Computed example of a mutant assay.
Amino acid sequence: MALLRLAHAGIRLGTRVVYLRYLAASVIALATDVALFLLLIGANAPPTAASVIGYSAGILVHWLLSSRAVFTEARANTQGGQHRQRMLFLLSALLGLALTALIVAAGGWLGLDPRLAKLLAIVVSFQAVWLLRRHIVFAR
């Protein structure tokens, strides 16, 4: 019984470590995303387009970090497996992108400041994409 509790605690700790690494990768990708978003809206780009371009740059940064530093033990070993992971990662990113674009656009329709709408989009898309990547893209 004690061994089972210890094993369960180890699994929870491992999940927390992966989540913290994912959070760090997300912060770096988010910084890329938001910096580009703010730069573009500062240059009078349409907010929805700026959010799509920023998020797309963040996707690339996140893939590089996730596949090399976050889900290291769940990285596919075969070329077919790696291709599948990249495609699933891209699909999860596209879902996050769609959520981001929809939330920023809806914020615009509601008259919200684009930065506030982007912040809301960040919170919603982060959790949705984390769940997909943890349980589908990089599932063991």
Results as ranks from 00 to 15, higher is better:
Leu99Tyr: 01
Leu112Pro: 02
Ser125Trp: 03
Ser51Asp: 04
Leu97Ile: 05
Trp63Arg: 05
Gly111Ile: 06
Ala57Cys: 13
Arg5Met: 13
Thr32Gly: 11
Asn44His: 15
Arg134His: 13
Ala25Gly: 10
Thr100Gly: 00
Ala45Lys: 02
Thr100Val: 10
Ala105Pro: 03
Ala35Gly: 15
Leu23His: 01
Leu110Val: 06
Val129Pro: 04
Ala74Met: 06
Ala9Arg: 15
Val123Asn: 07
Leu23Arg: 08
Ala128Lys: 12
Arg134Ile: 11
Met87Cys: 12
Ala57Asp: 07
Val70Met: 04
Gly107Ile: 06
Phe138Thr: 10
Ala101Cys: 05
Ala45Met: 12
Ala106Asp: 05
Leu97Phe: 03
Thr78Pro: 00
Ala117His: 05
Leu132Glu: 06
Arg134Thr: 09
Ile103Arg: 05
Val18Glu: 15
Leu116Ser: 04
Ala106Thr: 13
Ser56Asp: 04
Ile59Asn: 00
Arg16Ala: 14
Gly111Val: 03
Pro47Ser: 01
Leu30Phe: 14
Ala31Thr: 14
Pro47Trp: 01
Met1Gln: 08
Leu6Asp: 12
Val27Phe: 06
Thr72Gly: 01
Leu30His: 08
Leu6Ser: 11
Arg84Cys: 10
Arg21Val: 09
Ser66Val: 09
Ile122Ser: 02
Ala35Val: 12
Gly54Val: 09
Arg140Leu: 12
Val52Tyr: 03
Gly107Leu: 05
Val137Asn: 02
Ala69Phe: 11
Gln79Arg: 15
Ser26Leu: 09
Ala9Tyr: 09
Gly58Ala: 08
Gly96Leu: 04
His8Phe: 10
Leu99Ile: 10
Thr72Lys: 14
Asp33Met: 08
Leu60Gln: 10
Lys118Gly: 00
Arg12Glu: 09
Leu4Pro: 01
Val17Gly: 00
Ala93Asp: 01
Ala35Ser: 14
Val61Trp: 06
Leu30Glu: 00
Leu116Tyr: 14
Gly108Met: 08
Leu38Glu: 13
Ser26Arg: 11
Thr78Gly: 08
Ala101Gln: 05
Leu110Gly: 09
Val104Asp: 00
His8Asp: 11
Ile11Phe: 04
Arg75Asn: 00
Ala25His: 03
Val52Phe: 00
Val70Glu: 05
Met87Lys: 08
Thr100Trp: 04
Arg140Asn: 04
Ala50Asn: 07
Trp63Lys: 04
Met1Pro: 03
Gln127Ser: 15
Thr100Cys: 07
Ala93Tyr: 03
Tyr55Leu: 09
Leu65Ser: 08
Trp109Ile: 13
Val18Leu: 08
Gly81Ala: 02
Ile53Val: 11
Gly10Asp: 07
Val52Ser: 02
Met87Ile: 15
Lys118Cys: 00
Ile122Phe: 07
Glu73Ala: 15
Leu65Asp: 03
Ser66Gln: 13
His135Ser: 13
Val52Ile: 15
Trp109Arg: 15
Arg68Val: 05
Leu88Val: 03
Lys118Asp: 01
Ala43Leu: 14
Val18Tyr: 00
Ala106Ile: 10
Leu95Met: 14
Ala29Asn: 03
Arg21Tyr: 00
Leu60Met: 14
Phe71Leu: 03
Ala2Ser: 12
Gln79Thr: 11
Gln85Lys: 09
Arg86Gln: 09
Val70Trp: 03
Thr78Cys: 05
Ala121Trp: 04
Arg133Glu: 11
Ala45Thr: 13
Gly107Phe: 02
Lys118Gln: 14
Ala43His: 10
Gly10Arg: 15
Leu20Glu: 03
Gly14Glu: 07
Ala76Glu: 06
Glu73Phe: 05
Ser67Gln: 10
Thr72Met: 09
Leu20Ser: 12
Gln127Ile: 15
Lys118Thr: 07
